[in-house]
Design a protein around this nucleic acid. Structure first.
Length: 293
DNA sequence: AACTCGTGGGT
DNA sequence: TACCCAAGAGT
């Protein structure tokens, strides 16, 4: 439900004021240049801030601009990605750097649609980079913003499994005409640090008095339970083990070394094949494997 | 539209 | 302990 204009104005005032006082001092905020912002956004897809920080710092020292990364083999990006998870993101970030060099003269494009065309950049990331690095006005709908809006405006504990049209409409209706990029950052920050999924700290929330979920007495989520992510014995676990062996070795890895990482032969070879198909692993001489050159 | 894709810390 | 879930994207 769309809040009244009065409530929207109050939300803006109180949340932006809170953000002035409580925003975390993150490196990609201290220097919100396009490349650091793009790198951070790729790393932050499904990965918590605290785990991204050290990898981000090392990454920016090594590759301070898109051409620096584009000049390296993709495998170096995969290795530097370390244990952030979802290593295909490292491949996409490398491919994005190449595209930026080839199609945009080495500078991260400012246009939303140009950003969206980059590998690894979807609707959220395009809006985030356009907002935070270029100060544009876009609906930035990440998991934090979705949860904050679900609670404050809709009185629901959690948003729907996937972004709905109504949700996007609501987010657009509360987006300030001026300073939209700060509003985006503020709502994300609130969701990340106060209006958290598991244990919201409503006592510290600047918009508690305007929150419909709180007014309704914090009703539990109703509806189909959200499926967790299976892990033990999955291909994802197997792929992770195999790629860890590759990351930790500068020399080509033998099939025997990979066998030590995952006992099930059939699954091991299937996952190795899928890693090769994804471009994360490259076959080398004598039935050995390396990160992509 | 549902499914896949890593990793590790919090509760 | 056994989940839950984190600045999503691609297919």
């Amino acid at each position: 439900m769309t809040p009244s204009p009065t409530d929207v104005a109050a939300l803006h005032t109180v949340l932006l004021d809170w953000f002035d006082r409580h925003a975390r001092d993150l490196p990609w905020r201290r220097d919100p240049s396009p490349w650091p912002v793009l790198v951070s956004e790729l790393m932050l897809q499904q990965t918590p801030v605290v785990r991204v920080l050290p990898v981000f710092e090392a990454w920016m020292l090594r590759w301070p601009a898109p051409p620096d990364l584009a000049a390296e083999p993709a495998g170096e990006a995969v290795r530097a990605w370390g244990r952030l998870g979802y290593p295909r993101r490292a491949l996409r970030l490398h491919a994005a750097a190449v595209a930026i060099v080839e199609q945009h003269g080495g500078d991260v494009p400012a246009d939303h649609d140009d950003l969206l065309a980059l590998p690894g950049v979807g609707e959220y990331t395009a809006a985030a980079v356009a907002s935070f690095a270029f100060g544009q006005r876009h609906v930035v709908l990440d998991t934090n913003v979705r949860r904050v809006l679900a609670r404050v405006a809709d009185g629901q504990q959690y948003p729907a499994p996937a972004v709905t049209a109504a949700e996007r409409r609501l987010a657009g209706s509360v987006l300030p005409e001026v300073g939209a990029h700060r509003w985006a950052a503020a709502t994300m920050e609130l969701g990340a640090t106060v209006c958290t999924a598991r244990s919201p700290r409503c006592g510290d929330c600047p918009v508690a008095d305007l929150c419909r979920w709180r007014a309704a007495g914090h009703p539990e989520h109703v509806g189909p339970p959200r499926r967790g992510q299976a892990w033990d014995g999955t291909d994802r676990q197997c792929r992770g083990r195999l790629l860890a062996v590759l990351r930790d070795s500068t020399d080509p890895v033998t099939l025997a070394q990979l066998e030590a990482a995952w006992p099930d032969q059939q699954q091991r070879m299937r996952c190795l094949d899928s890693l090769v198909a994804d471009g994360l692993v490259q076959p080398a001489a004598g039935s050995t494997y390396t990160l992509p050159g």
